[in-house]
């Protein structure tokens, strides 16, 4: 597993605060993710997990804190800069481009790694044509990778729920991320789909992409994650290997509520 001797730090945040009016959705959150691990993030509803994702991907600007990725300072950077640096994500409530085909969705993901502008589009010079062909080839490859190549030409909204989740992963992978942040990818999936998804995540990790994962499915998390952090009311209340976190009294309390005795 990942927490071995030669671990390399990939992402590090500390002292992150995010307030919405009076509500402190993230309160002094710190965590560090090592290269190659699957890092789990759990916590009760409204704990601030998605908010943390939004901060990590530049969609929300944190009020305070530090945020570095591969040593690059990403504090309060724009989403496109964050993606360019190598962080990609999926959304808890699927946000595909519904009326584009599955293939086009993934092709949009290649935007950040390609260059063609208006001039290239209009004149279709050899360079642009080669790039466009490469975008398409890579996107098809990724559809294949997540197992939905046969749906390439279908509109995203016509895919089954599980396939939409897979498409979101393919689209995120198209940005060539080093860190893939998945917000409840198994939500609404049946047992078989969840198993498939687990295998997919293991494959992605084996291919060198670090994964940050939010999930409510405890069994899945325990079997999959190298380390887990627990958020409650915007605060990190525990962190560590699954076995330890599972038995941490604060975690049990957060999930079950304070027990009378």
């Amino acid at each position: 597993m990942a927490n071995q001797a030669n671990t390399e730090l990939l992402l590090e945040i500390s002292g992150i605060h995010k307030r919405f009016g009076g509500l402190c959705a993230l309160n002094d959150v710190a965590l560090s993710i090592n290269k190659g691990e699957i890092y789990g993030l759990i916590g009760p509803n409204g704990a601030g997990k998605t908010t943390l994702f939004n901060v990590l991907t530049g969609l929300y600007q944190p009020d305070e804190g530090k945020f570095t990725f591969k040593g690059i300072d990403l504090f309060r950077q724009k989403p496109n800069v964050v993606v360019d640096s190598g962080i990609a994500r999926t959304f808890q409530n699927i946000r595909l481009f519904h009326n584009m085909t599955a293939l086009e969705n993934v092709m949009v993901g290649r935007h950040v790694r390609t260059k063609a502008g208006v001039i290239g589009a209009v004149f279709r010079n050899p360079g642009t044509r080669v790039e466009e062909a490469a975008i398409k080839a890579r996107s098809l490859e990724l559809l294949d990778y997540v197992g939905i190549r046969k749906h390439a030409e279908e509109h995203a909204k016509n895919l089954s729920y599980g396939d939409q989740r897979r498409l979101e992963i393919a689209r995120a992978l198209a940005t060539d991320p080093q860190l893939l942040a998945l917000d409840e990818p198994a939500a609404g999936m049946n047992g078989k789909e969840t198993d498939d998804l687990k295998r997919l995540m293991e494959k992605i990790r084996a291919d060198g992409v670090t994964i940050l994962l939010i999930e409510h499915d405890v069994k899945l998390m325990m079997g999959l994650c190298d380390r887990i952090a627990v958020l409650d009311y915007g605060k990190k209340i525990a962190e560590g290997v699954p076995e330890v976190v599972k038995n941490d009294p604060r975690v049990i309390e957060a999930y079950l509520g304070a027990t009378p005795d």
């Binding site: 724009k78 496109n80 990609a88 993901g109 935007h111 950040v112 689209r171 198209a174």
Partner: peptide, 9 residues
């Protein structure tokens, strides 16, 4: 939002 999250400026 999704477009931003895909790295589109």
């Amino acid at each position: 939002i999704a477009a931003q999250a895909m790295g589109i400026n």
